[in-house]
Amino acid sequence: MQKLFFTLTALFLCTGIKAQIWVSKSVNSSFFSSTPVEDIDAQSKTGASALNTKTNDIIFKINNTSFQFKKKLMQEHFNENYMESDKFPTSDFKGKIVEQIDFSKPGTYPVTVKGNLQIHGVTKEYTTKGSLVITGDEAKATSTFNVKLADHDIKIPTIVFKQIAETIQVKMTAIYQPKK
């Protein structure tokens, strides 16, 4: 009786949680800064994300050093001077999908995501629109939003003020699969 009880609860907990978690191992994120003097863009392909189809919780995590720049010196400055990747190695987002989405039904859904974005050790609440395309065993999420550097305490020295925009456009693409 005792053993059965334990086994059942354990089984229930395991299966219950596993089926409702979808993961993405290669989140593609890029950002773009544009000023009349210089355009800067960088891309990371190794971010991670997971979402819970029941609770609508969604999280993202990206290693700051995984962003690749065209100019390597810029990449070094990005990590050394702006993101301080030694102190703050990752950027992450923890939030919820506002709409109720039925992940078993293929289709394209506009979604709203609300939550906290941590960059450079500073967390700020964001609400952003995106889209979710569900095709059978896969779900593709895309979103574009703007990040103000000042919001995350990333300071641009006056001498390079003209090269770096105050607001950076961020694009995210993630392809999810149910976690087995």
């Binding site: 949680i17 978690i21 993961v23 191992k25 190794t46 991670a48 994300s49 997971a50 979402l51 819970n52 609770t55 919780d57 969604i58 999280i59 995590k61 290693n63 050093t65 995984s66 070094e76 990590n79 050394e80 923890k94 976690k179």
Partner: peptide, 22 residues
């Protein structure tokens, strides 16, 4: 209390081999 915690565990972060820069 799980919601975010278990999701965090489900995350599969790549293990990067990093060289010290600068």
């Amino acid at each position: 209390a799980f919601a975010q915690d278990s999701l965090e565990k489900a995350l599969q972060m790549p293990t990067e081999k990093k060289n010290v820069q600068a």
